[in-house]
Write a protein that binds this DNA or RNA. Sequence first.
RNA 1: GGAGCUAUGGCAGAGUGGUAAUGCAGCGGACUCGAAAUCCGCCGAGCCGUCUUAGCGGCGGUGCGCGGGUUCAAAUCCCGCUGGCUCCUCCA
Length: 431
Amino acid sequence: MLDMKYLRQNPAEAAQRLADRGVDAGQVTALLNADEARRAAIQEVETLKAQRNEVTDKIAFAKRNKEDASEAIAEMQAVGARIKELDAKQAELDAQVADIAAHLPNMAHESVPVGADEEANVEQRQWEPADYQGRPAAHTQAPAWLKPHFEIGENLGILDFERGAKVSGSRFLYYVGDGARLERAVYNFMLDQHAEEGYVEMITPIVVNNEAMYGTGQYPKFEDDAYRVEGLDQTYIPTAEVPLTNYYREEIIDADKLPISVTAISPSFRKEAGSAGKDTRGLIRLHQFNKVEMVKFAKPEQSYAELEKMTANAENILQKLGLPYHVIALSTGDMGFSAAKTYDLEVWLPAENKYREISSVSNTESFQARRARIQYRDDNGKLQFVHTLNGSGLAVGRTVAAILENYQNEDGSVTIPEVLRPYFGKAKIEA
RNA sequence: GGAGCUAUGGCAGAGUGGUAAUGCAGCGGACUCGAAAUCCGCCGAGCCGUCUUAGCGGCGGUGCGCGGGUUCAAAUCCCGCUGGCUCCUCCA
């Protein structure tokens, strides 16, 4: 949710900043017009209400003195009826303003590259492990024996997509044996890392109510991609960002506790509406996948430093796993709905010979906090909206895919990265 | 699934139709070497609108879990819903 006062006072600037996010200027005009009509209606009805309050006081006074007040009462009956009409009209205008506003995305931070799509994204840095441990190096011509992760997984009997499709549908799978163990090793490693970095681990509900989905910005605009529970005011989460961020919904957080960092592993459910035909094989695009999520609540003056820290926390996982990656700053046109600034981490998948997104780290500033009403008291005791941040740390399935591809050997076996061995129990997966 | 109770500020808590008490906490002061205790004072309700501003503030509206209704007037009466607690039933 954007700050209505800012929009009113800086309509041209706001329209430009939203145009950078792909919003048609007509929407801003429509919002401001609706807002003006709403305020006019408020003034009209409030004048009448003030009059009613005044007369009502007189009636109360007259009754106490046993005087006759029937004339004033009759007059107020008519005023009351008129107030009821105007209240209804105002409620309609309120809903109109709220509806338009709820569909407007956040505005980008000034440091975000302006552009229409991913072409305008800007690479920040690349990282590769110094020691390849005999693995195929990133950016080099892949040897002929190199296989995509889903073939490796099927050959080793650790990923079963066919039975996933049989039992659930396309884009579902079973992890079997060492595959299941590897998935579990990866997210346990991630959670332990984040715990060391000061994140408080949580196990959250994975079904949330619609108010929560609205709070983080998934609703009302992106309902089509969500798994709703039939007949109930509930949805299977598309990311643990939703329950983690909504933890403090409608609360005032003690300022001394900020910044607060939390993390959780959870399954994430996405219908992937509009992705038909894309990434149909493997672990890249599923209807259900595990993800370790990081969320922070910060004061406005802290939030961009925390964004850099959170990005470093996600990078740390990839570095410890020895997976090549790069960091890109998303352009205004490529960022998600709620974000003011986003860094994507993309991991190197040698079989595809390209980088694929494995983490997205965003500062939403006060956009989500305004929707979810998460506040703190500043030094003057005034209520302020916190800034909320979220980032994957990391998508677990995609990490498993990256490990299988980057650590595969010519004989079809896969070496387990050193840091995972305490969790996995052995050094290699073999047929 | 059934029954009863319940929801008021950061917290506790009064208020059964006519201006939402009070206490704790918080802030300032006195006392003290300092602190605690005590005493005095202040502040303390979110949201919307508007004026003045640009440090604040004034005025109006609304606001007592949420949504409706009755009434000149609702925290208070009526209806519906949600959350919490207790009991019954069931259950990993």
